[in-house]
Amino acid sequence: MADLRITTKALPEHNRVRNRAMLLQTLFHEGPRSRADIARGSGLNKVTVSTIVGDLIDQGILVEAGHSTDVRVGKPATLVAIDDDSRSIISLDLSDALSFRGAVMNLRGQVSHQSQLSMLTERGDAAIDRAIVLAEELLEKAPAPVLGIGVGSPGMVDRAGVVRFAPHLGWFDVDLRGALAERFGVPVHVVNDANGMALAVHTFRENDGRSILIVTIQRGAGAGLIVGETLVDGVDFAAGEIGHVVVDPRRETSCLCGRSGCLDSIVAVPQIRRRLDAGEERDVVMEDAADALAAALAPIISVLGATHVVLVGPDDILDEGFATRTRTHLTDRTLPTTTTVISVDIGSDGGLLALQGPLVAVLSAELGIA
């Protein structure tokens, strides 16, 4: 989370970056505004606003967008707006159990091209090579200058873009950001896949912005959490690593971590499909998975007061029935006053959320938009 105590002085360049971010945030979320309206709304003086706007117009990120229709004395004010198509962002989603997916997107998160590569047995360096091949293909399709490459990776990811722990891909202290940046020479930002989806919900979906819990179920289970407008990643970047929480120590299930009864060993997509393919009744399998998931989520919800839960995963596994089962088990495991306001939704959008997460990581780092 953000530092609570300020330990370094603010430099002039910090103020310039902050002021530009404030201006772009306003235009991104509120639409075209005049320079005077931006100054009034942000508290920045008119000279500062005019300077920032001029620089961003020169860079092609902002454009003049006609005149204000407000009835005022004098000449109508000229509006400025973000040119959504002025930059391309390459977004890679490495979370799926069967493939790596990617897209070329504009600043608004709209897709102009998508691609995917199957991922069956590739691990370690071979998996990095597949990500590079996918990024290379997408870069060739970019219709505008590339602002950066965003990557959503499973596992523990630090702020330097190093994947510290992603056993399903055989990645341990892998400098994924460095590998892509060296290969392509553009800014690269790597984020845990669930954290990225939490950012995407915060930026692109209707929500109160205060408490969002994203749960991804693919090769394993992970969570992304925003509390009080702050993404929680933990001291060791392990916040949200719920897949290896032991939810049933008596269960004889094996996990990559070497323990029995982990959440991953019960709710991971390959495990669920294996049970279904073996002939177990779907209701039994999904009830079991929902109960295990609720066992891991109930303490998080009770401690942090998370009220908006979004489940993301394959459509053939996660459906409204699974969301209902999960909420029922959460109700059984928490005080009624805790769960009366909880919503459990399915993030069913054709996988767009998983691609918009890495995009927000780039928008935030390069333009201050989130």
Rank of each mutant, 00 (worst) to 15 (best):
G321P: 03
R101E: 15
T338L: 10
V227Y: 06
V162K: 08
E206K: 06
G228V: 00
G43E: 13
R18D: 05
P32I: 01
T334F: 00
T7G: 11
F28T: 01
R250E: 11
G224N: 02
D55S: 11
V53C: 06
A2D: 06
A294I: 01
A36M: 04
R333T: 08
V174K: 06
P270A: 13
R35G: 12
M105I: 14
V227A: 08
V235T: 08
D283E: 03
A194L: 06
G258T: 02
I128L: 07
D315I: 14
I214T: 00
N195Q: 10
R20Y: 03
E137Q: 15
E252T: 09
V360M: 00
A166V: 12
T253G: 11
S95F: 09
E281S: 07
G220C: 02
D96E: 12
R327G: 05
K141A: 10
I89A: 00
E140S: 15
G170H: 07
G41E: 15
D175Y: 08
D283K: 06
A144L: 01
G102A: 11
P12E: 09
D316K: 10
H14C: 03
D264P: 03
V247M: 11
P249T: 07
H189M: 01
S364P: 05
S86F: 10
G170P: 07
D96G: 04
A239E: 03
D248P: 01
T69P: 02
V285A: 03
D345R: 04
A21K: 12
L263H: 02
L120Y: 02
T338Y: 03
L139N: 05
E252C: 02
R325W: 14
S118L: 09
G279L: 04
G170F: 07
A296N: 00
L297G: 01
E280T: 04
D83L: 05
Q356D: 07
S343T: 10
